[in-house]
Write a protein that binds this DNA or RNA. Sequence first.
DNA 1: TAGATTGTTAATCGATTAACAATC
DNA 2: TAGATTGTTAATCGATTAACAATC
Lengths: 216, 216
Amino acid sequence: MNKDLLNRLIRYKKIATKMKELGFIRVFSVNLADALGINPVKVRKDFSFLNIKGKNKGGYDIDYLIKKIDEILGKDGVEKVIIVGVGNIGSALINYPGFENVGIKIVAGFDIDPKKIKEDAEIPIYHLDKMKEVLKKEEIKIGVLSVPEVAAQRVAELMISYGIKGILNFSPVRLKVKDCIVNDVHIEAELENLIYSVKFEFKNFANKENKDDHTN
Amino acid sequence: MNKDLLNRLIRYKKIATKMKELGFIRVFSVNLADALGINPVKVRKDFSFLNIKGKNKGGYDIDYLIKKIDEILGKDGVEKVIIVGVGNIGSALINYPGFENVGIKIVAGFDIDPKKIKEDAEIPIYHLDKMKEVLKKEEIKIGVLSVPEVAAQRVAELMISYGIKGILNFSPVRLKVKDCIVNDVHIEAELENLIYSVKFEFKNFANKENKDDHTN
DNA sequence: TAGATTGTTAATCGATTAACAATC
DNA sequence: TAGATTGTTAATCGATTAACAATC
């Protein structure tokens, strides 16, 4: 199960759920492919690999598809997540309402700035010193790291020592860690990449006529 | 120039710049490879492809390397960017101080909520109605899209109609657009992906002993 | 039956790594 | 010279696409 396949699986489920809400009961590989912008063969390959069966000419049963994906993903209730570093990005995430819909609950934030501590808020913000206690009590495995660059490596190691097994890393550094999965969200880098991509496109606009409608 | 290569190029430059600040004058492919967590052959392949020459046994001259990368990237001063949708994420980005260092300037934000409008702020926030005017005047090509999901497609089309050529998309939808490059930053999806990756790792922890120190 | 769709095998493509000559 | 490093060719690997039989 590589990251790309996992991403597709999450998206298949999202689409199937929406179609179910609209009253559909089955979906063809070509529908899912259109929605994701990929080749229908890849959808069938994915499902074949994951042992999700379709009906010849009948497509895939939506209820069955959702059930299978949930099985594969090990869906089991709400996942608790903490936010470490309550700066611009950190507080944006704490206030973001969309996580609930996908079964994610932000249970606490942590910071070292006394002005940011609010232990009695709906989502409490504690001093970093309390992280160990909270993590152990709540058995939290997933943390968002949104501290300044200079602190990132050190704080990541702290989190891992308290039992964190997955870090969503917003700091612009490559974390060197053991026994922990890191997913990077490097906004700066994405923006720089975009800027240069646009520049190249302009530079070469004379050369290429048939541009795609969506460049990942 | 694909996206991965572009990303590596940006990182090569960042590392070279830091090494220069530390007083180094040359760098070996293996150094850059270590920093990026890749194979040194790939570094040399990249440089060979981009016509960046090293010295046999002498590595790559840092000043020359930076100059060549700047040439390739078409580095020319500060890039102006707007933020469309000044919610949690949008305002976090407006207040984020790190963009200056990489030559990015946020020049304005746009929203439809009158409470958010602040035309006389350092980084002014205008009503969406003024977007056309500002974009034309400042000749802005790059925009960050951080509006709610339901508005994303419509607002993206609006931006493009006013001359935007690159969108950094924070909304959890696949934008269907023409003549515009879209880079996605899907925080929710990354977090979901992380959660499931950790679950799988646990499920299979008995099977694998030698885990890598960093999983992208 | 004819047409549409799944599921799989084979072919293709590109990215990555291995191997190694050239050279300092 | 011996060792280290670049640069390139060849080999490998995995992901993607093409082709097509099976089937409803």
